[in-house]
Design a protein around this nucleic acid. Structure first.
Length: 852
RNA sequence: GGGCGAUUAGCUCAGCUGGCUAGAGCGCCUCAUUGACGUUGAGGAGGUCAGGGGUUCAACUCCCUUAUCGCCCACCA
């Protein structure tokens, strides 16, 4: 039991984690009301970043706490194939070998990426273990596991059968670098400065012209109309006539459409159905031809020879130059407008027409809004609820198709003889299938990964087929980052309701981003990324946990603070040394008995620890992690270590000491699991196999409230002595004399010890400095000269008290206050007034004595 | 263009539905100490709670407004 002086996390953490895991402590107990948390799956082949650490810590605190509260608890871990992210990395590797995705079949690519991922899998799982995540590892689900694929197909079929899935040519967001389309919310819009170019389109007789305004002149080569507002007097006479599209030999009509804003630009809009979502709609309304002029690789096609093969940006310059040469440019103006970019590579997203699979979102969104408005899901912070509803209200159909191989194939086949004949079939490994003599060719695209992730709660719990974990659905709380509220949380709600008829989780807690020490967003390019595993190695897992959690509130981005991690490490060390002291006192053969509080300090510490336990309970129910951690930190550091352990040195009560340590370990365990368990394993009063992780949350013991308050009076006296003494000449010890004061008399030794005095003794002839502030019949025994020096000290206290008195009087003389404020507040003020008056009286008396 | 959040001690941040002399960690100052802990103990300095207005007996907290910073959403060319 000879514990080293300082707690050394790395010598215990791995053993402790192994102990938990092998004992089955992470598995549901099977007793009590279910409590479940679903881990947002980190990238299977990546490393944990500091955001993941925060995620795991918050979730693990909840899981450990509710486990101790006796709930049947599960923390379901996951691993993400991270479709697009991994694909991008893999394609880069592929490029190095001089090959491209077009050299392989979907199956070949898939298995190559699988191997690539497999090589470096497992890191993040080890890192989650290092953080102490008490996840049920046997229940881990990988996002490409068979059950995920099966359920995803089942859901797709269900939606298809209900007419919510359709395939169609639509304008999609396309990244020409990555050669795949994206959902609307994956596009990163940035406000950019650009130019609005005015271009003249001459009438066929070349007498007149119509001037259009555009930010993307290169797309004019694909124009198939010019639109004006039907009531626009400027252009009314031209409606129905044709103009000659410059740089080409095409004649295009001038059409009227209400969409056109007469006040913007020139009031005439060039219509390019293939490259603009609005134009696409207009094109449909007016049966316009669609001419694709930008290809899927971002180069020009179907254009006059001099432009063919140019990058879109280069084509813009050439088109402008050509127009200028023909004197068709009519000026340009600066404009700020939003431009969509690929969130991964920053390329400009091209709106391109493509055949894709979509889900009709409106019915799903409506159901979700209904559930949220009925408070079937609680959001923390609450404001996110309104954000998500706003998102639902403006939702558009969701493009599910991705042109990457690393994902779940879309289970659909097309009749080779009838392009409109699509059928559902999950034989996705076969390129062709025969049904009723008809040949079908498979869809080559895969699903947007968020489509399968959106089903995570009912997939992982097996809610649909009633597996062992089905009782954990709906999930108790979904904890995740606020940055994926729309991508993930909103989809889980919609799909959960649609497929299971229930909300997928009852509560949502959204944490903010972890910023760097100075509040800047972390990024590789800025070089300010904090590696959580380095911090963990340096300070310990508990320290990192405490540091990440403190001073952090829901939904708020917050800076990482090494100082707080250090504070966490110091806390673990403090706990360690409390244990070292107490265990040393009790000896190895101590057997725990029911503690009987004896001294004032005993009652007081029982009250403090019980308060902390109930406080943490209610704080965690509100997800106030930081305050809960602080409560534990201060209760253990100040109340237990600084006061109780010190007091116990004078007034011994071994059973109380044991209880105090035991209870401290329990309340600290959710926050600092490793050090608490390490200590627990050294407690002589528990049998082999006992673990704090499996212990219960402390119950409130019987203590005497009055005795507890008496201890506070004692503390006030000790504090006053300490305060006065620091002001006195150093290097000598002082003594206190007391008169008829049983509190002081009964605790004389304790006071002497706590205030580091020479003596505390009864005296018939009081002299020296009356300890007036704490109101006891006690005097600090000092000579006249010292006393005189101390006068200013008393004067300062007196001035403070007088100011306070003034404020209190002012409040109580205010009739409205006395009438309208709650009675208990008025009463408290009155009592405080009386106390302040008494204090002033004592201080004045004392000053008078000194004066004489 | 729309929405949201922030502004509190030198730094990083708490402060829930309005009511304790506005708190924490780190930093700073003074002092202490051979036995649980220097990853320590005791004491202390430091804030007109961004500015202005309003509601209220009472505002860091609610409302309006201004300023600054940040984030999210957005197919008006």
């Amino acid at each position: 039991m000879n514990l080293p002086k300082a707690y050394e996390p790395d010598s215990y953490e791995p053993t402790i984690y192994a102990l938990w895991e092998s004992s089955g402590a992470f598995k549901p107990s099977g007793n009590g009301e279910p409590y479940s948390i679903l881990m947002p799956p980190p990238n299977a082949n990546g490393n944990l970043h500091v955001g993941h650490s925060l995620m795991a810590v918050l979730e693990d605190i909840l899981v450990r706490f509710y486990r101790m509260k006796g709930r049947d608890t599960i923390y379901i871990p996951g691993a993400d194939h991270a479709g697009f992210e991994t694909w991008v990395v893999y394609e880069r590797e592929l490029q190095k070998t001089g090959k491209s995705r077009f050299d392989f079949s979907r199956e070949q690519l898939y298995s190559q990426v699988w191997d690539f991922v497999d090589q470096q899998r497992g890191n993040m799982e080890l890192q989650l273990r290092a953080l102490g995540a008490s996840a049920s590892w046997d229940d881990l689900v990988f996002t490409l596991d068979k059950r995920v694929v099966d359920t995803t197909y089942q859901t797709f079929k269900k939606l298809w059968d209900e007419g919510l899935i359709y395939r169609g040519e639509r304008i999609v967001n396309y990244c020409t670098t990555h050669q795949t389309s994206f959902a609307d919310i994956e596009v990163e819009h940035k406000n950019e400065k650009g130019k609005l170019y005015k271009i003249a389109y001459p009438t066929l007789d070349k007498i007149d012209e119509i001037i259009v305004a555009t930010t993307r002149p290169e797309t004019m080569l694909g124009d198939t109309a010019v639109a004006v507002h039907p009531d626009d007097e400027r252009y009314k006479h031209l409606i129905g006539s044709h103009v000659l599209l410059p740089l080409t030999d095409r004649e295009i009509p001038i059409i009227a459409d209400e969409y056109v804003d007469r006040d913007f630009g020139t009031g005439a809009v060039k219509i390019t159905p293939s490259h603009d979502p609005n134009d696409f709609e207009i094109g449909k309304r007016h049966q316009l031809e669609e001419i694709q002029v930008i290809d899927f690789d971002g180069r020009m096609i179907n254009v006059p020879p001099q432009f063919v093969g140019l990058e879109a940006s280069e084509a813009r310059k050439r088109v402008l130059a050509a127009l200028k040469a023909q004197e068709l440019n009519r000026g340009e103006t600066d404009i700020e407008h939003a431009v969509g970019h690929c969130y991964k590579c920053g390329s400009i997203i091209q709106p391109l027409v493509k055949d894709q699979w979509f889900i009709k979102m409106q019915p799903l969104a409506e159901r979700a809004i209904e559930a949220i408005e009925k408070d079937e899901i609680r959001f923390v912070p609450d404001s996110k609820k309104h954000d998500v509803i706003r998102y639902y209200k403006n939702i558009r159909d969701w493009n599910l198709s991705r042109q990457i191989a690393w994902g779940i194939p879309i289970p659909a086949f097309q009749n080779v003889n009838d392009p409109d004949d699509w059928i559902f079939d999950d034989r996705v490994d076969e390129e062709h299938i025969e049904i009723n003599g008809k040949t079908y060719r498979r869809e080559e695209d895969t699903f947007d990964t968020w489509f399968s992730s959106g089903q995570w709660p009912f997939i992982t719990t097996g809610a649909l087929d009633g597996g062992e974990l089905a009782k954990f659905y709906p999930i108790s709380v979904m904890e995740t980052g606020h940055d994926i509220l729309y991508q993930w949380v909103s989809r889980m709600i919609m799909l959960g309701l649609k497929v299971t008829g229930q909300v997928p989780f009852k509560e949502v807690y959204l944490h903010g981003l972890v910023l760097d020490e100075h509040g800047q967003k972390m990024s590789k390019s800025k070089g300010n990324v904090v590696n959580p595993m380095e911090a963990l190695a340096e300070f310990g897992s508990d320290a990192l946990r405490m540091g990440l959690v403190s001073s952090r509130s829901a939904g708020q981005n917050q800076a990482f603070s090494t100082g707080k991690v250090v504070a966490g490490r110091n806390f673990a060390n403090k706990l360690w040394n409390i244990a070292r002291y107490i265990e040393g006192k009790l000896g190895e053969n101590y057997h725990m008995k029911q503690p009987v509080p004896n001294s004032l300090a005993d009652h007081w510490v029982m009250r403090e620890l019980s308060h902390a336990a109930t406080e943490v309970d209610s704080l965690l129910a509100d997800y106030r992690f930081a305050e809960a951690a602080e409560t534990v930190y201060h209760t253990i550091w100040s109340s237990v270590a600084d006061w109780y352990v010190e007091a116990s040195k004078q007034q011994e009560n071994p059973d109380m000491l044991a209880w105090v340590l035991d209870t401290s370990l329990r309340i600290a365990h959710p926050f600092a699991p490793f050090v608490t368990e390490t200590i627990w394993q050294t407690l002589p009063w528990y049998k082999q196999g006992s673990m704090v992780i499996a212990s219960s949350w402390p119950k409130v013991p019987d203590f005497d409230e009055i005795a507890a308050s008496e201890f506070e009076r004692l503390q006030a006296l000790v504090s006053e002595i300490r305060f006065v003494v620091t002001d006195l000449p150093a290097g000598k010890k002082y003594s206190v004399g007391y008169g008829a004061d049983s509190l002081v008399a009964d605790n004389a030794d304790l006071i002497r010890h706590l205030a580091r005095l020479e003596k505390v003794e009864a005296t018939d002839t009081p002299s020296g400095l009356r300890l007036a502030a704490s109101g006891r019949e006690a005097w600090l025994l000092i000579d006249e000269a010292t006393l005189y020096e101390h006068q200013t000290n008393l004067e300062v206290r007196l001035a403070e008290a007088k100011q306070r008195l003034k404020a209190l009087r002012g409040r109580l003389e205010n009739k409205s206050y006395v009438e309208k404020a709650p009675a208990h507040l008025v009463e408290a003020s009155q009592q405080e007034l009386a106390e302040t008056e008494a204090l002033i009286q004592r201080l004045e008396n004392e000053l008078e004595v000194i004066g004489n």
